[in-house]
Amino acid sequence: MTFTVPAEFQPIRVRLDEGSRPVALFWGNVEYPIERISNRYRVPSGSLEEPECHDFYEITTSGWLMRIYHNLQTDEWGIEELWD
């Protein structure tokens, strides 16, 4: 089933490889190594005055399928959805 992560629980930290691709994420105190990135896409939003852009990654970790995002303006990462 799909689980939408509430905003207050979304923030994560991410470890990147040399090509700036995420290889592991830290949610709370738990590290989740990323086994596979099945899709990556970019969604521009906001306005001319206040542009925003997010990169989304659909990833597989141990036991979870996740959609995580990267806010390119603020460099913040978060989890948007989980599937079990």
Binding site: S38, N39, R40, Y41, R42, V43, D55, F56
Partner: peptide, 9 residues
């Protein structure tokens, strides 16, 4: 590949 959600597919 313009990084659209369904580009890869």
């Amino acid at each position: 590949n313009h990084l659209l959600r369904d580009d890869k597919s």
